[in-house]
Measured scan of single mutants.
Amino acid sequence: MADQLTEEQIAEFKEAFSLFDKDGDGTITTKELGTVMRSLGQNPTEAELQDMINEVDADGNGTIDFPEFLTMMARKMKDTDSEEEIREAFRVFDKDGNGYISAAELRHVMTNLGEKLTDEEVDEMIREADIDGDGQVNYEEFVQMMTAK
């Protein structure tokens, strides 16, 4: 299944994987998964984290390695993001709930994920998604960005 991913997608997933893999040992533990999910405003229980890991832990060693992570991402993409997942993601970014993602809100979430971005990089990300040019990202623009192939 992971063989249907483009090189660009694999590179993006590698970057995402390293955000989860806090200690850089090449595997994601339940603790690391929990840290990232909490930084995104989720509050999973230990059991939920274990279930999430077990779902993709092909070799049964209790952690997720990069090939397992790729399989999980490929699977998720095949079920292409349901509207509800996209709306949920939008809410994570839209901290003040005004229906727009500002540069400050984007920077806040990315920083929580451990991504240190310059102001230019954040502005560039907003510009790429900002179709109507108002300097922020509304829900429609967010959907376009998330579903762009």
Rank of each mutant, 00 (worst) to 15 (best):
E7L: 06
E84Q: 09
V122I: 11
L40M: 14
M146T: 11
L5R: 08
E12S: 05
N54I: 10
S82W: 07
V143N: 03
D25F: 15
D51E: 10
D59L: 12
A104H: 06
D3N: 10
M110G: 05
T80G: 11
I53G: 04
T147I: 13
D21M: 07
E7N: 01
G114K: 03
Q136M: 00
M1F: 08
L113G: 00
K76Y: 15
E12P: 04
D51C: 00
A2M: 01
F93L: 12
E83Y: 03
T45S: 11
V122A: 13
A89E: 01
A2T: 12
H108K: 06
E121S: 00
G26Y: 04
L106S: 03
E7P: 02
D96S: 04
I126P: 00
S39T: 11
M37H: 07
F66V: 12
E121W: 01
E83T: 01
F142Q: 05
T27C: 02
S18V: 09
S18K: 06
M77K: 07
A58G: 07
M125T: 09
G34C: 13
D119A: 15
I28R: 13
T111S: 08
D94R: 01
M125S: 04
I126N: 08
M125W: 00
M146A: 07
I53V: 13
L5H: 01
E124K: 12
E140Q: 13
I28A: 03
T30D: 04
T45L: 11
E8M: 06
Q42K: 05
D25K: 02
N98I: 09
S18E: 04
D79Q: 07
E120R: 01
H108M: 14
E115F: 01
A58S: 08
M146P: 12
Q9K: 10
F90D: 10
P67C: 02
D134N: 13
A47N: 05
S82Q: 09
F90H: 08
A2E: 14
A129G: 11
Q42L: 13
E12T: 04
V92M: 09
F142V: 00
G41H: 02
G34T: 05
D23H: 13
L40K: 13
F13Q: 01
M52E: 06
Q42R: 13
D65P: 14
G97H: 03
E32W: 09
D25P: 05
D94K: 00
N112I: 11
K22P: 00
Q136S: 04
N54L: 00
D79C: 15
L5Y: 00
F20A: 01
D3G: 11
F66M: 02
S39K: 04
M77P: 08
L49Y: 15
L106K: 02
I101E: 04
D65E: 12
K22I: 12
F90I: 08
D96I: 02
L19M: 08
E15A: 07
E140F: 04
D57H: 08
L40W: 03
M110Y: 05
D119W: 08
Q136D: 04
I53M: 15
S102P: 08
E7Y: 05
Q136V: 04
E7W: 15
A103L: 00
E141F: 00
D132N: 10
N112V: 07
D3E: 12
L106H: 09
E46K: 06
F13L: 12
T35F: 10
K149D: 04
T6V: 15
A11Y: 00
D51L: 02
T111V: 00
T45I: 09
V36R: 01
V56S: 05
T118F: 10
R107C: 11
K14H: 02
A47D: 09
D3C: 04
T35H: 04
D25S: 09
N54H: 08
V36W: 02
E68F: 01
G62W: 07
I126T: 11
D94I: 03
I64H: 06
G60K: 15
F90R: 01
M1A: 07
V92H: 07
V92W: 08
I101C: 15
T29S: 07
A58T: 13
A58W: 01
D96V: 09
M72E: 02
L106D: 15
L106Q: 03
K116R: 13
M145E: 05
M77F: 06
G133P: 01
E68S: 08
M125V: 12
K76M: 03
T118Y: 13
H108T: 09
E124I: 10
E68T: 10
D3H: 06
D21F: 15
M37G: 00
I101H: 06
K76N: 07
K95G: 04
K76D: 08
K22V: 09
Y139M: 04
E7M: 06
G97F: 03
M110D: 05
F90M: 05
D21H: 07
R127C: 01
A89I: 10
D21K: 02
L49Q: 02
F69I: 04
E121R: 10
D130Y: 09
N138M: 08
S82G: 14
A47P: 07
L49K: 02
K78A: 03
E12N: 09
V36Y: 00
A47T: 13
V122C: 06
M146F: 15
T6W: 05
N98H: 10
F69R: 01
T147M: 11
D130K: 01
D119P: 02
A11S: 10
P67H: 10
P44D: 08
D96E: 10
E85S: 00
L19R: 04
F17G: 02
N138W: 00
D23K: 15
T111C: 07
E84P: 04
T63K: 08
R107P: 02
N61H: 01
D65G: 13
G34S: 15
I28V: 10
L70N: 15
D23T: 00
H108R: 12
D134E: 14
R38N: 00
G26L: 06
E32P: 01
A104S: 11
L113K: 03
A129L: 04
L113I: 11
